[in-house]
Design a protein around this nucleic acid. Structure first.
Lengths: 213, 213
DNA sequence: CCTGCCATGTGCAAAAATTCACAAAACTTT
DNA sequence: AAAGTTTTGTGAATTTTTGCACATGGCAGG
């Protein structure tokens, strides 16, 4: 294993990608996989798979491949999804609801322990997942009380920075921002901006390049 | 303007990013912006902004900066978001609903003209946006009839590839896949895989690297 | 009309990421 | 136990992307 090689940012994202087919293979009882096959499933180069994994250790067996169970465990451990995280969410519109109710995230160990909204109408309402929508004024108190580690922002864009500041002030260490603005935070707080309208725009761009029939 | 320089994939995504503050500036009556300011808003390097824009033309005025209105129009034109796109969506769970109802997407010219689900219970239900949920069996027919250009997949992962094949077969030219699997399509169809659980995993990774207090 | 100023556009250098190509290692077969 | 096969792990080459640094060109003020 390499000493302290710099790890490309994209390598982390790919690690998450690799874990998807591994889960399926595991369910189907396949016990071993080669970098070539795994690369094929994920649409990347086999050497890339090996190099990405090599940043973190030697997980394979030469001449054989990777043990599916082991590799999945290792990737989970690297991505820190082998443990539970406590999250809160701010902005209970359609997207907020979709995220907080998402089965998949729950299974990955992301536990939403509080939901906030600005709208008084919504306060006190119980969500299907059992959480009760709280006023944003209670954010600071509840974040500290419930030991929230990550804040998820699903508010309109003009609220996003203010909410981020609230979260940082309350001591949250990570923010996932789904609104179409880049929010900023002092270091000590990790920000992940997710703006997925960008992906629509990307697709539109590529489609407009293709000769229309 | 450069002849046919290869355009970095990431440049397209940044173009979309640049458009966000431009919209705000426009609303606030700011008419001119420098690459330095715009870069600051987006958390990138000023030279990067200029270079990204230069791939597509000369939009600025030396010594002055970029006209906000013009630049926004140019970016929209490049990203092909100055026109309407017709989309359909498959999988009307929470996420599907959130996307189809999203105000923001509607304003950007993404028109959902059909919504599908496998679940018989849901067939015939009217969504808030006015669409009626259709059985997947009608996909091929409706896609052709309504001239759908883009298919959006919000089904569980084990359905995603099958739905993609249906879409391709029906003649759709672009697919936006929100399920946590990489789907594939023959060329002639542009695929954009959006798996945003990856972003949670990314955040978890970076948080686990930070010294916990 | 000329001079000074300022931010763009871009050639080029540096950095980063990806891919190649092969030696190293483990398992299988003889 | 040796030879053969297969697939990993990785140094080196290649490709791609980013950032610097400055010439270029337009505007403003005199």
């Amino acid at each position: 294993m390499k000493k302290t090689a710099k790890i490309p940012y994209a390598a982390i994202e790919r690690l998450a990608l690799y874990s998807r087919p591994l889960r399926v293979l595991l369910k189907n009882g396949i016990t071993v996989i080669s970098s070539e096959k795994l690369a094929e499933y994920c649409g990347v180069n086999p050497a890339q798979v090996r190099k990405d994994l090599a940043y973190f250790g030697e997980f394979g067996v030469r001449g054989v491949g990777y043990d599916v169970t082991d590799l999945l465990r290792e990737i989970k451990s690297i991505l820190a999804t082998d443990r539970d995280w406590t999250l809160c969410i701010i902005g209970m519109g359609n997207l907020g609801n979709a995220i907080v109710e998402n089965e998949n995230f729950r299974n990955m160990g992301y536990r939403f322990v509080a939901a906030f909204d600005k709208d008084q109408e919504k306060h006190g309402k119980t969500l299907p997942c059992g959480l009760i929508i709280q006023p944003v004024e209670k954010l600071r108190h509840l974040v500290k009380l419930l030991n929230v580690q990550i804040g998820v922002i699903t508010t309109p864009p003009d609220e996003a920075q203010r909410v981020t500041d609230l979260l940082v002030d309350a001591g949250v260490k990570g923010v996932l921002n789904f609104s179409p603005t880049q929010v900023k935070a002092p270091k000590g707080c990790v920000i992940e901006n997710v703006d997925f309208a960008v992906r629509f725009e990307n697709l539109a761009y590529h489609l407009s390049k293709v000769p229309r029939e």
